[in-house]
Write a protein that binds this DNA or RNA. Structure first.
Length: 580
DNA sequence: GCCGTTTTCGGCCCGACTGTTTTCAGTCG
């Protein structure tokens, strides 16, 4: 069993234990282990076979045999026992906002409620009232949140959440008293999908009530979920939840750090603070013992006070950033303007909406030195894949455009389909015509993991392939992608000296940030590609830069931080190796 | 269940908000 599945099961066990009323610290240990496994770069099965599971921090003698069973046998007696002892419908009930394990358990034990349907019926029939802890408001909330669950179940893509968040931010910044405000939470950490929008504002205390009231009256606000003196949650008309928190200007850096998270990062930070004699919360440092305080003007000051280098928001996932910050070995962050060009763009030759010339011109306006055009190959008929004749004509067009430009170059590439067996959709002669080749899977998704992985590895081995496009084929919040073993693919790319793209389209973000470090450690070069189908899509590279930063990549790990001269040399060298 | 330079017991991050059990437990982030 793979890490992702193991992590899901350990997480399920933690939740089941909560529902069973187990020791909360034991439950937390399981939650922590699930998170640890999900972000681990080493396969649990390898650790299990080597007997080294307990060398992983957070896994001890209790969890190790369970993980080993899951990794090697795919089952676990403890899991089976838990599943038998807790009604499976209770897991669904936890999704209702306001219901946690204690209340779900009470509903089950006292009223036999074990599903969303029976919960809805019981609430409608007034059967909840009288149960300890449940009054009239609880009933109304449960009914409303059950309805919300149906309507707003899905998370949102980063781009969509960020757009909505920025519009709220602009409105908040105009409220009387607000001195500074920011998006926080998972948007600021550049997560791929977003559950809710966190907005933080600093303002003098006497203006807080007015700000909270104003927030509830915004044009985009659909419904106020909860509202107190300093905190308010609303459901935006766009169907995404938005939380506003208002603090005093003195508390702002602490609150910004706190509400950016992640939860795991913050927990570690507080533990570190405690070891230094400070209690840390969203308002400041308090000296343990004498109650003294310590001011910070910025987040940088806060990290400095803990003896840490400033940790950028994208890295705050408790994946080693705190240790690196204390040793001064955090990765050098890729700057916003550090890309000098990009690859994998489409034009009207296949399914793009702009011509080669228009795409090139837009790239120049972004200050880039080059753009790589990679339209679809012939098998991608649904996407207007080119014929061999089209290829010749398109390359001629690109050469003509290049002849007219100074200080900018269009690279003639192709996004060639990786066919089901792993062969490529162009013959070698055609492949040899391009400056570079992106190989991608676009069809035949119903494969086993072994088949999908071998298919891609075989394509990577092909001498004419320069880079791999969208490695897993996932569409965030839409489809899973093919079941590829990403680590094996990265290993193959390392062996064959091939590049892997971070597809920066906000629906893809594929390679995922969690795999970037492994690629970097294996020496695999990454290309941040927008997969742009129109000029506006070129700007999507910023989402790819977010993925790269979040994945600990540095400028030297990314192909398109190279200037035109270096990139040309690099592509020429790989062409020469392929005998082109 | 995990951890440990105070290491095999005792602690494990911390606060806001809600609703209801009129002083606080549960939930959420």
């Amino acid at each position: 069993m793979q890490n992702r599945q193991i992590a899901d099961i350990i997480e399920e066990m933690a939740t089941l234990m909560e529902l069973a009323g187990d020791n909360p610290f034991k439950c937390r240990a399981f939650h922590n282990a699930a998170r640890l496994i999900s972000i681990s770069t080493g396969e649990m099965s390898v650790h299990a076979e080597a007997g080294t599971l307990t060398t992983l921090k957070g896994i001890g003698k209790g969890l190790a045999p369970i993980i080993a069973d899951l990794a090697l046998k795919g089952t676990s007696d403890e899991l089976s026992a838990l599943r038998r002892s807790v009604h499976p419908g209770l897991l669904d009930m936890l999704k209702v906002e306001g219901l946690g394990p204690k209340k779900v358990r009470l509903l089950y034990e006292k009223l036999g409620i074990n599903s969303l349907d029976t919960l809805r019926r019981a609430a409608e029939e007034g059967k909840l009232t009288g149960l300890s802890g449940f009054g009239g408001k609880s009933r109304d909330n449960i009914l409303r949140n059950l309805a919300l669950l149906d309507r707003y179940r899905d998370k949102r893509l980063l781009r969509e959440a960020e757009t909505a968040g920025e519009s709220v931010l602009a409105a908040v910044s105009s409220l009387p008293g607000v001195t500074v405000c920011s998006l926080a939470g998972s948007i600021r950490r550049r997560m791929s999908v977003i559950g809710d929008i966190d907005v933080l504002a600093a303002a003098p205390e006497k203006t807080h009530a007015g700000i909270i009231a104003g927030f509830g009256k915004f044009q985009d606000t659909g419904r106020v979920i909860s509202s107190g003196p300093t905190k308010s949650s609303v459901m935006l008309d766009a169907g995404i939840r938005c939380d506003l928190r208002v603090v005093t200007p003195a508390a702002y850096p602490f609150a910004l750090q706190y509400f950016t998270g992640s939860k795991a990062h913050n927990t570690r930070l507080r533990t570190l603070a405690k070891s230094l004699g400070w209690s840390l919360n969203e308002y400041g440092f308090t000296a343990i013992g004498n109650g003294g305080t310590r001011r910070c003007r910025t987040e940088e000051d806060l990290y400095d006070a803990l003896g840490l280098e400033y940790i950028p928001p994208e890295l705050r996932e408790d994946t080693g950033e705190i240790e690196a910050a204390s040793e001064g070995t955090l990765p050098r962050r890729i700057g916003d303007g550090e890309l000098r060009g990009t690859f994998h763009c489409h034009t009207t030759w296949s399914d793009g909406r702009n011509s080669v010339a228009e795409m090139a011109s837009a790239a120049r306006e972004l200050g880039w030195e080059y753009i790589g055009i990679a339209d679809h190959s012939k098998a991608a008929s649904y996407a207007g894949g080119l014929s061999v004749k089209d290829v010749t004509r398109q390359i001629a067009e690109i050469e003509e455009l290049n002849a007219r430009m100074r200080g900018f170059r269009i690279f003639a590439g192709s996004e060639v389909d990786i066919l089901p067996g792993g062969s490529l959709d162009w013959d070698d002669r055609t492949l040899g015509c391009f400056d570079y080749v992106v190989a991608s899977v676009h069809s035949g998704f119903r494969m086993s993991e072994a088949e999908a992985t071998q298919r891609i590895i075989r394509a990577l081995k092909h001498k004419h392939v320069t880079m791999l496009g969208h490695p897993t084929g996932r569409l965030l919040l839409e489809r899973e992608g093919y079941p590829v073993n990403v680590k094996s693919v990265i290993d193959a790319a390392a062996d064959y000296g091939k590049i892997i793209e971070i597809n920066a389209n906000p629906r893809r973000l594929d390679l995922d940030w969690s795999h970037c470090r492994y690629a970097r450690d294996r020496g695999v070069l990454i290309s941040i590609n927008p997969d742009a189908h129109a000029v506006a899509g070129l700007r999507d590279v910023r989402y790819g830069v977010g993925v790269a930063r979040k994945g600990w990549l540095e400028p030297k790990d990314v192909l398109n931080t190279l200037g035109l001269t270096d990139v040309t040399a690099r592509l020429s060298a790989s062409r020469a190796r392929a005998g082109r």
